[in-house]
Nucleic acid binder design. Structure first.
Lengths: 207, 207
DNA sequence: TTCTTTACTGTACTTCGGTACAATAGCAAT
DNA sequence: ATTGCTATTGTACCGAAGTACAGTAAAGAA
């Protein structure tokens, strides 16, 4: 099966030819020469905010080639976009910077009739689906419960966007103490910096 | 990675040993002898109406073996059961009568950090999730529209918690360029650091 | 009493984020 | 042709964030 990469830019070309020696790269579907019934795997490389182009391109490919399969490579993976494009007929959605071994696995799955999604996205789908059936308590509270009272307090201020200095002033302790609490939060919640802590406590984390 | 089949009966033994010569078959997790940090792929064979046993077993395995992965083989696949067990930490769910080639594919996927689901289940998940992930809040899209395409892309990666270095690698530009885009975002959106940018794009406006 | 957890602080250090000066180049509109 | 926006990169610098390796003090559980 031919591998046809449709990309507005060439930044990831090396990655693709590394995965598939026969990879063909185009900037537009219109450039593709292929029989209506030939089998082809289209890899659509999309930037953020390209939903319209993506949508139109998927329709165009599926209308023009009856045995085409489409996998979307997203620079900025997003659940809504994934759901949209999969419902329009794509059979895969993953990070654009996935390395060669992943691309090979994706091809193996979709060429056998499967659908490929990244782990984060899948778990998100599973989690949200379950919410529809059983309204679960927020994961946020369980995260906060793994912290000591003071740590929890500091964590919440971090998640509002306050700096260490500001938090220290508010709590009337030294900045060093704030750092100590924050480091403890990172350790206990398994995150690596204050931004990820904030995302976690704002319940925007996918992992 | 060892393949450990946990099954109440031996009816499918031949199938498994056909797929994995080294397959080990047990009737209970308690019989498994394995170091706490050894890597192992547990295949749990479940009948219909075994949700409780399944749930308990998954928890037991994940608690006892830190590098274990779990795939559920269901005699009677069911969406609710799949969603349940996947949310508890399983990384695969498929038909117990899947043939050897499928089992090998499943192993390939999960050993690379993926999740294996059948197509029906996936589409169910996508369909239900779409109801939840409709449109982004207007404030977010209007914020993104005040940025150039590249800036918007970078901003969204920031709001996922990525570091400058990671973003640079993904976009295949230098860290300096990423910094330039991010600074431009700050200026245009009137925020002062990446954390507030992330909160803004996650629609958690500051109080 | 000893052990554990929590809260707090100090010094020194490295890394990361962000800004201040730039500059080059493409592309589109006037 | 000039103007303006976008994308890119460079060097240098400063301050914030975070870690390493400490220590003190109080309270509650064993």
């Amino acid at each position: 099966m031919r591998d046809l990469f449709i990309s507005p830019r060439n930044s990831l070309l090396a990655n693709w030819t590394g995965a598939f020696e026969q990879a063909e790269v185009y900037t537009s579907v219109a450039d593709v020469k292929m029989g209506k019934n030939d089998a082809g795997l289209f890899w659509l490389h999309v930037d953020a905010n390209s939903q319209q182009w993506l949508s139109a391109t998927v329709v165009q490919i599926l209308a023009g080639f009856s045995n085409a399969k489409i996998v979307v490579l997203a620079n900025v993976p997003e659940q809504a976009e994934a759901a949209q494009t999969l419902s329009e007929g794509s059979v895969g959605y993953c990070h654009a910077y996935s390395d060669a071994s992943v691309l090979l696995a994706v091809k193996a799955v979709v060429s056998h009739g499967g659908i490929w999604l990244g782990k984060d996205l899948l778990q998100y789908l599973i989690a949200t689906s379950r919410q529809l059936v059983t309204a679960q308590p927020a994961a946020v509270t369980s995260a906060l419960h793994r912290l000591s009272p003071r740590e929890s307090e500091v964590a919440q201020q971090v998640s509002l966007g306050l700096s260490n200095k500001e938090i220290a002033r508010i709590l009337n302790v030294t900045e060093r103490t704030v750092k100590a609490h924050i480091s403890a939060c990172f350790e206990r919640l398994g995150v690596k910096d204050r931004l990820q802590l904030a995302l976690l406590l704002n319940d925007k984390s996918l992992s």
